[in-house]
């Protein structure tokens, strides 16, 4: 039997990922860039009017971009501190039996479909917000950000917990042996040592929030406006794509503009992903030294 053949076949199949990545970039560029033939890049990115079905269409994505960034920022603000608290709890404080229950539960929570969260935002959170704060609609930036926070807590908390666990046991021992309390050990030894991992975990959570669709599609209100308060509705890039692509003629300027929105999303998430990879590498190098 020829020993070379299976290796070649395996390598060929492995290249499928490469092919998918190349096709993904190719199609987004091919379908997204034509938008620039009809609208200047300046207007596309900095324009404040998104009326894609008017004649002629106004395709300014600034409100969509601001929408994406505001939901992401607010949800990160809610979720990251809580996630890190939970990770510290799981790694440093919780008794073993609590760990054994809570860790799988947290992981399971990560599988919660985003449509379910979006649905809860519509039927539970929105009416409550509307009544409590006397609003016209409870579907807004705050609603979507709270749910998005719930969406990324399992991701950030699990990864953060892993980076706490990666801190060598010996460092904790050394700190305790010097008479430090548990909190002092966490704050002064474990936390600084885990910091690169925590940064990377937070970035991956932020990346997930930027790209998440269903939660914002259902709970963010959908108005293509730049929000001035947390009770304003927003229309992030992802929800614009999901809501409008179905009703857009293939090849129209609007169609190309939505692909361009996809390109913006891809660029932002890839950028964050690369930064987090770089931080992880730096963190590992620090341990090697």
């Amino acid at each position: 039997m020829n020993e070379k053949t299976p290796g070649a076949v395996i390598t060929a199949i492995a290249s499928v990922s490469l092919v998918i990545m190349v096709f993904l970039l190719y199609f987004l560029l091919q379908e997204g860039l034509p938008a620039l033939r009809e609208v200047s890049i300046r207007e596309l990115i900095l324009g404040f009017d998104w009326y894609p079905t008017e004649e002629p269409p106004a395709l300014g994505m600034a409100p969509l971009i601001v929408g994406s960034l505001s939901v992401t920022a607010l949800s990160a603000l809610i979720a990251i501190p809580l996630s890190i608290a939970i990770a510290v709890f799981l790694s440093e404080v919780a008794p073993t039996w609590v760990q054994e229950v809570l860790k799988p539960a947290l992981e399971l929570l990560g599988f919660l479909p985003s449509i379910v969260l979006g649905f809860l935002g519509m039927v539970v959170l929105a009416p409550w917000l509307q009544e409590s704060f006397d609003l016209l609609s409870g579907l807004n930036l705050l609603n979507a950000s709270v749910l998005m926070g719930a969406m990324i807590i399992p991701i950030v908390a699990s990864l953060a917990e892993e980076s706490f666990q990666a801190v060598p046991r010996e460092l904790r021992d050394a700190s305790f042996a010097l008479g430090a309390t548990r909190w002092e050990t966490i704050r002064k030894v474990v936390f600084p040592a885990a910091l690169p991992g925590l940064l990377s975990a937070s970035l991956l959570g932020i990346m997930r929030a930027l790209g998440e669709t269903m939660v914002v599609l259902m709970a963010a209100g959908g108005a293509a406006l730049v929000p001035v308060s947390i009770f304003d509705p927003v229309r992030p890039l992802t929800s614009a794509i999901a809501a409008e692509m179905g009703e857009t003629p293939v090849g129209s300027t609007h169609y190309h503009a939505l692909f361009f929105a996809g390109l913006i999303l891809l660029a932002m998430t890839l950028g964050i992903n690369l930064i987090s990879m770089w931080i992880e590498k730096k963190g590992k190098e620090r341990w090697m030294a």
Binding site: E170, A174, A177, W287
Partner: peptide
């Protein structure tokens, strides 16, 4: 301790 364990500082 057995293994030198300086803090990463």
């Amino acid at each position: 301790f057995q293994k030198p364990n300086p803090f990463p500082m």
